[in-house]
Amino acid sequence: MNKKKLRLAIIGAGMISQGSHLPAALGSSRVIVTAIIDPMVERANSMAREYGLKATTAKDISEVFDQIDAVVIATPNDSHAAIAITSLSNGKSVLIEKPLAMSTKEGEAIMVAAEKSGAVLAVGYATRFRNNIVCLKKLLDRGHFGKVRRFVNCFGSPGGWSPMSGYNLTKDSAGGGVLVVSGTHFIDRMLHFWGMPDKVSMLSDSKGGPEANCHCTFEYESGLRGGAIFSKTTALPGGTVIDTESGIVMLGEFDDSEIIFRPHNAPDMEEVIHQKGKTTYPVDADSFNMQMDDFVSACLDGQEPMVSCEEGVQSLRLIERLYDCAEPLPEDWFTQEESV
């Protein structure tokens, strides 16, 4: 292991930086946070004060290039590409909070910049660093449950996450609605598990702005069928359900959710499956901490990051395909005819 320390800049002093990226960086013995960047410098100063940091604060990343080796980009989605390309062009490694960019085109431009610079580019799909996801992937790859026939993911909460910038309120700054803000995590995991679907469809409640609800379906040539339900107006029971040859597999949406298996031949029973012996990550690990460790190892030890730029671009491709075919989600509940 390289004993050098990574000099890191956190770009964007919003909620995700305050609550997740900065604590993850400060918790690593291999990172020195040397700069905090935000167009509203007072916000960056406030975050530095909150954590007792003596980091440089600035409006723009170009002001601190001589003080850093890498950056975490946690800004509104519409600024990801420009900041990433500038940073990579200056030889700085980059961890970008999901989604990678606003469009496939932007994502590909980032990929070109990363290849040219030789610096690390990792995409912040933190849920990949959950032990339960690592374990489920192994089980699926080994065909433990037999053939997978269908899967569905469901995730919804009435509001909740309230970014300081309010970037979620417009398509221009978010690049989409609930599919981009919440659903992209499952889209990434779905591609990780089963690859790119052949046919997709989507129902969306957008009336010109970012959709608050969407229902997606996926079809694979192998016969596998999938669905995803995302909501920002309604509390939904979060989790993934997989219908396999031998039974139903379920996994909740938390770092410590258990993999539950309900066999078809014993519908009143269920088993809990977990990794035997040492888990990939510590049992109580925070996924953002693991993501930071992964990024630091990629930067200092030359290890491949867990989520590559290409995978980030694949997610953008699928999201674009879904938006391209989106149809209105019927909202006929205010026009119900009188029941007889």
């Binding site: 269908r150 899967f151 569905v152 469901c154 919804g156 609800n213 229902h215 379906t217 669905g227 339900i229 909501s231 107006t233 309604t234 939904l236 029971p237 979060g238 989790g239 359900v241 219908d243 139903i248 379920m250 309900r262 989600l329 019927p330 909202e331 006929d332 509940w333 119900q336």
Partner: peptide, 22 residues
């Protein structure tokens, strides 16, 4: 209310049987 609930929870769709497991 019922139409709204079933629609947004996708309990009137083709994955309803699986979603009920949650």
């Amino acid at each position: 209310f019922k139409t709204w609930y079933q629609r947004l929870h996708a309990l009137d769709g083709k994955f309803a049987d699986m979603l009920r497991q949650l």
